[in-house]
Amino acid sequence: MTTSPLAAPSLAPAGKERGGRRSFLLALPTVPFFAYVAVFLVLPTIIVIVESFRNRDGSFTLDNARRLFSANSMSVFGQSLALSATTAVIGSVVGAVLAYAIVTGSPTGPLRKILTAISSVLAQFGGVMLAFAFIATVGRNGFVTKLLADWGLHMDTTWLFEFNGFVLVYSYFQIPLMVIVFLPALDGIRPQWREATETLGGSSWTYWRRVAGPILAPAFISSLLLLFANAFSAYATIAALTNANTVVPTAIRGAMINEVSDQGNYPQVLALGMIVVVTVVMFAYARLQKRATRWLG
């Protein structure tokens, strides 16, 4: 027992070089983690993919996949993509401005702490509660609705449950998410870069155009992609707002409820469509994220 601690450190490089059996044994302690992930993450994903190419009796079919391109599915996907793109752009632009405003203040001051805490709550906790918040604000008897009515502005409140309403509600968690993911990138900007620009005769515009802009661009675009994926996957808020199956996640809900009467594996097919979209987006995200950390690490 006393000798093993001394021997242990020297095992690591040897194991790496020889590979094979030794590195396999060394990897053993990671098995519980990967086994868990295999059962609760990889297996469900495989089930979705396999099931979307099978019909009720379990034989292989492409009929389901064809349903992905039906007019109905296409319009749902179109709606989802439009909503995600719109709110990703709004969220990332407004969020980046707010994040920059936060960074110009003290890094340990109360403003930053309060705003990051609010952002975390709205971006990651909200869901159902945010839907109620907006019903309370611009719903039929909402606070702002009544306020506007008092001023003589009568608003048709059904818009909250349509595209524009979704954009508003989604922005409410997209902007905070941008603040959270973009703050670290802005923190990586060094004041020396600005001083260097000034010493070389650059204006504020030159600095943003030639220095900060290009450095922040990968981080900004990767955050935008993350926001897109986030909006595309969001379920709770819109599910609490409306029973209509207007976006893909709620269409999946609808298909799951009607599963019994349905002939094909429609929920799985819609889910497969989501996997394809999100995988493309997140692949680009991961690539850009690597680039982003080159200067801002």
């Binding site: 990967f34 992930v37 469900p44 089930i47 994926a229 989501m274």
Partner: peptide, 24 residues
């Protein structure tokens, strides 16, 4: 590998996981 797994967990939407987890 581990980073990839975590990115995968971030990528797969909850609603998709629900569809796959239902039989599990």
């Amino acid at each position: 590998t581990m980073e990839f797994v975590c990115l995968l967990a971030l990528t797969i939407p909850a609603i998709v996981l629900v569809v796959g987890l239902a039989p599990i």
